Amino acid sequence: MKNSVIRQLLLAIALSTIGCGTRFEGDVMDIASNTPDVQRTSKNDLSESAPSHENTSMPHDHKQAFAYPEEVSKKWNNPERDKWQHPEEIIAALALKPGATVADLGAGTGYMVAHMSKAVGQDGTVMAIDASEEMVEYLTKRQAELGPATIVPQKVGFDDPELPASGVDRVLTLDTWHHIEGRETYAKKVYDGLKRGGLFVVVEHDVQAEHGPPKGMRLDSRQTARQLEAAGFRAEIVLESMPRHYMVVGHKD
């Protein structure tokens, strides 16, 4: 009985994140239309300091590796997710080219891995990185169906993406950035793993979104951008049409 209760609690936490997973004055680019936008605004154009939010009663630890991939994949990989996640806008922000090497940090059950695989094609590589051994095993079993790219599942710790030095063209993290502690240090490791001209795309829950992690854990888009800038990136808050999320793009110039 005790094990059953624990299992149900872990599943509830995992499912909650996908329903949910410092100020910055940066250049803003309209990714939805692929045209430059001179505005310096975003959905999170908030006050000088980060807002204070109430925490919900649902546990949502920073260092949390989700389990039970077969069960959570029913929600995380549901095609209905495309209607509000808008993966085509994320792919546009990544500006992927055939043959590129791209890493998905917090790959989970492979929702974005599949989209990125199509974008880089059979000559490309997608590093599907996660801290959960169960998720990595699940991705390993699904390598063939996640093609046509070469899929490389990789388990890492919570504090290091373990990217090859200057070895990756693009990096994505979706609904994962708020889980990472020491984000500026972590972002520097991403920076070091990117080739010159590479991009680091962070997609996170809007602080005012109805669904998402506890609001006390959410990050204002300008906080995220400042963290990337502290690691050496040139950061842009990207205009998009996702109802629950924002995007920040870090450039390694």
Rank of each mutant, 00 (worst) to 15 (best):
G19M: 01
C20N: 00
C20T: 00
C20H: 01
G21P: 01
G21F: 01
T22Y: 03
T22R: 06
T22W: 01
R23S: 12
R23Y: 09
R23E: 11
R23I: 08
F24P: 01
F24Y: 04
E25T: 11
E25M: 07
E25N: 12
G26Y: 00
G26Q: 04
G26C: 13
G26K: 04
G26V: 11
G26D: 05
D27V: 10
V28N: 09
V28G: 05
V28Y: 06
M29H: 08
M29S: 04
D30A: 13
D30Y: 09
D30H: 13
D30I: 02
I31K: 04
I31V: 15
I31T: 14
I31N: 05
I31Q: 06
A32M: 07
A32K: 11
A32R: 11
S33I: 10
S33M: 10
N34E: 15
N34H: 13
T35W: 08
P36H: 07
P36C: 04
P36G: 06
P36Y: 09
D37C: 12
Q39A: 15
Q39C: 13
Q39S: 15
Q39N: 14
Q39E: 15
Q39V: 08
R40D: 12
R40W: 07
R40L: 12
R40E: 13
R40G: 11
T41Q: 14
T41K: 12
S42V: 02
K43G: 14
N44E: 15
N44F: 07
N44G: 10
N44I: 04
N44S: 13
D45M: 09
D45Y: 06
D45R: 07
D45I: 05
D45A: 10
L46E: 05
L46T: 09
E48N: 05
E48K: 10
E48P: 02
E48D: 06
S49I: 08
S49T: 12
S49E: 09
S49D: 08
A50P: 05
A50W: 03
A50H: 02
P51F: 02
S52D: 02
S52H: 03
S52G: 04
S52P: 03
S52F: 01
S52K: 08
S52Q: 05
S52V: 06
H53I: 01
H53N: 01
H53G: 02
E54P: 00
E54G: 04
E54N: 02
